[in-house]
Design a protein around this nucleic acid. Structure first.
Lengths: 238, 238
DNA sequence: CATTATTCTCGTACTGCGTACGAGAATAAT
DNA sequence: ATTATTCTCGTACGCAGTACGAGAATAATG
């Protein structure tokens, strides 16, 4: 369906970006491939974060001149779209369904979260973006199949899936931020000291109590599962 | 509590940023104020989006030299923190509580959404950030008070609030993206054409059906309310 | 086989970003 | 008056995305 080899079909419209186009019959042969460039960008983002993904870095990683990248993606934004679809290929789009749509949909949520934890830049990249590449659509197809037993109409099914994705993105982004804050001892200590100071000022009694009676710590995994279950169990098919 | 007037107390640690410090008794008087700079940045973001907020633009807006801003915020990231807290001041932190925590918490969610719709850059700014300014903490205090009847322990209450914020951010971000895509007729048409083409390829039967049987369109407002209600009604206090 | 059209590669260069540096101006304490 | 302090802001640096266009490679054409 998609060529996913050389240049051409650069971006802007989803049609131009994702719909196949035959290899041009004239002209110089491409020295790189969209696939290789995208993979390099993903590897870079995985290893050093989204901000390490610059056109210069990606180019040097694949051994190309910087401006050569622009034959494969019309701009950096398009490269991001390609990255999102690339990692979305890791989602199993042909998994079996149990027939119990709540169970199936919970699995889908967990798959999304796992993907985002493997590629921590993904929630940020997904933010305010509506990816439409083949891998994303394949997974959407799978999700829609899982929702078939609900009998919801088309718009409602699409909406439920979008909302799930938005929820998982939000959750994982928060989870990652929390983990990062906890990982740096200085920063965590400074924050704790500051909050203690605020709590001690007398104007924040609820905060003071919440900090003094923490209860047992919650694992992100458990928290996610609880909220996900609530959201899905609460879904109404009427 | 905070001075919020001239420079000093620049950032990095939350302590250094938010805790009061007396006006220095020596040296030149500040020509601007943190408040004015922050307000200018917020106005800019409201009018032209977050990407319009550059140090140069903000400086010219307040009539300062670019580098003067750095006397009021140690870097641009800190300015973003200030912006977040600034608009958080619009949240009513002293609203009355009904005593029914589910009702109160739903109101809190709607207040957050309304704030984010007024300042569409807010979800993006909030992303992967944990704001701790006075206005944010005042609203947190309010939310914790609303959760008091649940009997949850401190960590759980804080977690519930964080999750609510993450959920609302994710939802509104998606809502804004959707609205933006719909608003541009060319872009929406191109997307529809592309999806129709994909649906016609025979490999996406569920998608084809969902697109052909859309049902009645959903208002973002109604969708938000439904999901929010589900999330909160499903919350368990055990 | 020479020519030509096409498509790619990539060096150069432009604009705009965040911000380090440090000189000079204003202010208050000595 | 001197001095220490705190602010203002012009200049400059490195890095970002990318427009431009010259040159290289390829395939169709006469």
């Amino acid at each position: 369906m998609t060529r996913d080899g050389g240049p051409g079909a650069l971006g802007a419209d989803p049609e131009e970006l994702w719909l196949s186009r035959a290899r041009p019959r004239r002209g110089r042969k491409p020295a790189f491939s969209r696939e290789a460039i995208t993979a390099a960008a993903v590897a870079l983002a995985d290893a050093e974060g989204l901000e390490a993904v610059t056109m210069r870095r990606v180019a040097s990683e694949v051994g190309a001149g910087v401006m050569s990248l622009y034959s494969y993606a019309r701009d950096k934004d398009t490269l991001l779209d390609l990255m999102i679809d690339h990692v979305s290929g890791e989602l199993p789009a042909d998994g079996a369904l149990t027939g119990d749509w709540r169970t199936d949909f919970k699995v889908i949520g967990h798959l999304q979260r796992a993907l985002m934890l493997r590629h921590p830049w993904l929630p940020a990249a997904l933010f305010a973006r509506r990816p439409l590449g083949p891998n994303v659509l394949a997974f959407l197809e799978h999700a829609l199949a899982a929702l078939r037993p609900t009998g919801l109409d088309g718009a409602a099914k699409l909406e439920v899936f979008s909302q799930l994705t938005a929820f998982v993105s939000g959750h994982v982004a928060h989870e990652i931020a929390q983990a990062a804050a906890t990982q740096s001892p200085d920063r965590a200590a400074a924050e704790a000291r500051y909050l203690a100071a605020v709590a001690a000022d007398g104007h924040h009694p609820e905060l003071a109590e919440a900090l003094s009676a923490p209860g047992r710590p919650l694992t992100p995994e458990a928290t996610f599962t609880r909220f996900l279950n609530r959201l899905i169990d609460g879904l109404d098919t009427s």
